[in-house]
């Protein structure tokens, strides 16, 4: 990391870029929570010392360049298919640590079947589910997770549940199944929540190392660009509105 100000002697580094992240700059928009989530995944990989045995599944969408941001092996999956691809890798080589990183359009719409069935089989994988209630990369269209009344480019007058249905609560659905081990919903809009999300991601990876089965961490995230908000407003929107529809906390935790 190029240092602009020399650090005087007597100081120790307490925070910086994790080793699992490359030097490639993120392509996420300014203030987007994706960047925090990506970093937390890298921190978990660092902390568990598993970089050399981890394979990530990069999604379609805003995190499509995830393989460039991180230093582990990667497979690029088709939209929604990440959990099936992860299943194939993990079954072929159970010694690898396999994680998917998916948005809500990917995981909760086109990939609903792949996600539910991987969870129901109790595949020993880790799923990072970034839920910002919108299709970010394609231009801010309605996602299954979009809140009632929320304006998107395909619900210009707000999502009307009578026309478009209700926000899909994937984590609640998965928590009803016998297969999954750990299902939790977290957020990263402030420091305390980031600390909790970090612990949840760490646990989801540790579960896999211990052979415990399917773990999914849903993270309520922002899309300042398509929500037409500043990053600060977007964070407050998550805290004040989104968490009402999607309550935070563990939905399933089999010890």
């Amino acid at each position: 990391m190029p240092v602009e100000t020399a650090v005087p002697a007597g100081y120790i580094r307490v925070f910086g870029k994790p080793k699992a992240l490359s030097d490639v700059k993120y392509t996420y928009c300014p203030g987007c929570h994706h960047g925090i989530v990506t970093r937390l995944v890298a921190e978990a990989i660092d902390e568990l010392g598993i970089l050399e045995r981890t394979v990530g599944i990069a999604p379609v969408g805003c995190a499509v360049f995830l393989d460039r941001f991180m230093n582990c092996d990667f497979v690029q999956a088709a939209h929604g298919r990440a959990c099936a691809v992860a299943t194939g890798i993990k079954r072929a080589r159970p010694e690898l640590v396999v994680f998917t990183y998916q948005g809500d359009g990917d995981l909760a719409a086109i990939g609903t079947a792949e996600t539910i069935h991987a969870a129901n089989r109790g595949e020993n994988i880790t799923v990072i589910f970034v839920n910002n209630g919108i299709y970010g990369m394609t231009g801010g269209e309605m996602a299954p997770t979009t809140l009632p009344g929320q304006r998107t480019t395909t619900t210009p007058w707000g999502r009307d549940p009578r026309l478009h249905g209700y926000p899909l609560k994937i984590s609640e659905m998965l928590a009803q199944l016998d297969g999954p081990t750990y299902i939790t919903r977290q957020a990263v809009f402030d420091y305390p929540h980031i600390v909790r999300a970090r612990q949840a991601i760490l646990k989801a990876f540790r579960n896999q190392l211990e052979g415990k089965g399917f773990s999914l961490v849903e993270i309520l995230s922002t899309c300042p660009t398509n929500w037409r908000m500043s990053p600060q407003e977007a964070g407050r929107w998550v805290a004040e509105h989104v968490t009402k529809h999607y309550p935070l906390g563990d939905l399933k935790d089999v010890r």
Binding site: M1, R13, G16, K17, Y26, G35, I36, R39, D190, Y191
Partner: peptide, 13 residues
């Protein structure tokens, strides 16, 4: 550093 979405900050103590 925790809230920075771009991992642009390095902190020393």
């Amino acid at each position: 550093g925790y809230v920075c979405p771009d991992v642009a900050l390095e902190i020393y103590r």
